[in-house]
């Protein structure tokens, strides 16, 4: 419309807040990461690939995120379909339960898994009672990156379900019926109809899962302290440890943010356009 230039002023407050508390700090992180001992250099970045701790943390984070994203996707798809098919009322109820983990702090998730799967956790003792499994041996895995995977799935699967549930309800099932009525076999239906229809949602869901688990550290911190070296935890320890080299943390943070932002942009490209479409 016309004479609406003044409306841009309404965007000023949010722009200022974003600039002061997000953009400027991040620019600072980026600039600092380019300096080493007062001099401009790329040493911080090259050391990421040389120094064992950094290389290890990057690898651990990538492996952890990739495998949790994959598992979350594989578990989430059938679950979301079951939810979709479970009837209107049940679905509404299950979806609200599904949202519970999303409101939890990572800390809470970590602790609840100690109660469930820890050395004297409920499930661990259950296994001991019925199958005679040694609690110490069983629960040891919880405090490694494999244990983290289980805990991460607690807040990742709900996200996958949320992404998929709208894909299921937006799916054009008559396409499927048309394909079958035209004599398409199950493989043709899967690859020519079902995957093209649901592919974007699946890709969006798994990239969301990947980015979320890449950036989270609350759960890992609660479960393992700083024992499992994932990228955000290594950054965190650099901040709390005064002796540590903050520029190194800065370069790690830049790498981490690049990965998550890249993945999220992919997610946005395939999925979130429909949010504000009119």
């Amino acid at each position: 419309m016309e004479r609406r230039g003044w409306i841009y002023i309404l965007l000023l407050p949010i722009t200022i807040v974003l600039a002061v508390f997000l953009l400027w700090p991040f620019v600072l992180v980026f600039l600092e990461s380019l300096f080493s001992e007062g001099r401009l250099s790329l040493v911080n970045y090259t050391s990421l690939f040389i120094k064992g701790l950094y290389r290890e943390s990057l690898a651990t984070s990538l492996i952890l995120s990739f495998s949790t994203a994959l598992l979350g996707t594989l578990i989430g798809i059938p679950l979301s379909y079951a939810l979709h098919k479970s009837g209107r009322k049940t679905r509404g109820f299950l979806l609200s339960i599904n949202a519970i983990p999303l409101t939890f702090s990572g800390l809470v998730v970590g602790f609840s898994f100690i109660v469930l799967l820890g050395t004297s956790g409920f499930f661990t003792l259950l296994l001991k009672q019925f199958f005679g499994i040694n609690p110490l041996e069983f629960s040891a895995f919880l405090f490694t990156w494999r244990g983290l995977m289980v805990a991460y799935l607690y807040f990742l699967i709900p996200r996958m379900i949320l992404t998929m549930i709208s894909a299921w309800s937006n799916a054009n099932w008559s396409l499927l019926e048309a394909a079958v009525s035209l004599g398409a076999g199950p493989f043709t239906v899967l690859f020519k109809v079902l995957l093209p229809m649901l592919g974007p949602a699946i890709l969006a869901g798994s990239s969301l899962l990947f980015a979320v688990s890449m950036g989270a550290y609350g759960t890992a911190f609660a479960l393992t302290g700083v024992a499992v070296k994932i990228l955000p935890l290594v950054i965190f320890t650099h901040v709390s440890d005064l002796a540590a080299d903050i520029e190194k943390a800065d370069s790690l943070a830049v790498v981490l943010a690049l990965v998550t932002t890249g993945v999220i942009l992919l997610y946005e490209q395939v999925f979130s356009r429909k949010l504000v479409k009119r």
Partner: peptide, 22 residues
């Protein structure tokens, strides 16, 4: 759309690190 995804695109640890320095 992007701002909606910011907390995931810029992990809290990165933001925290920036705030502590800025």
């Amino acid at each position: 759309d992007f701002i909606i995804l910011l907390p995931i695109a810029v992990p809290p640890v990165v933001m925290g690190l920036g705030l502590v320095q800025a």
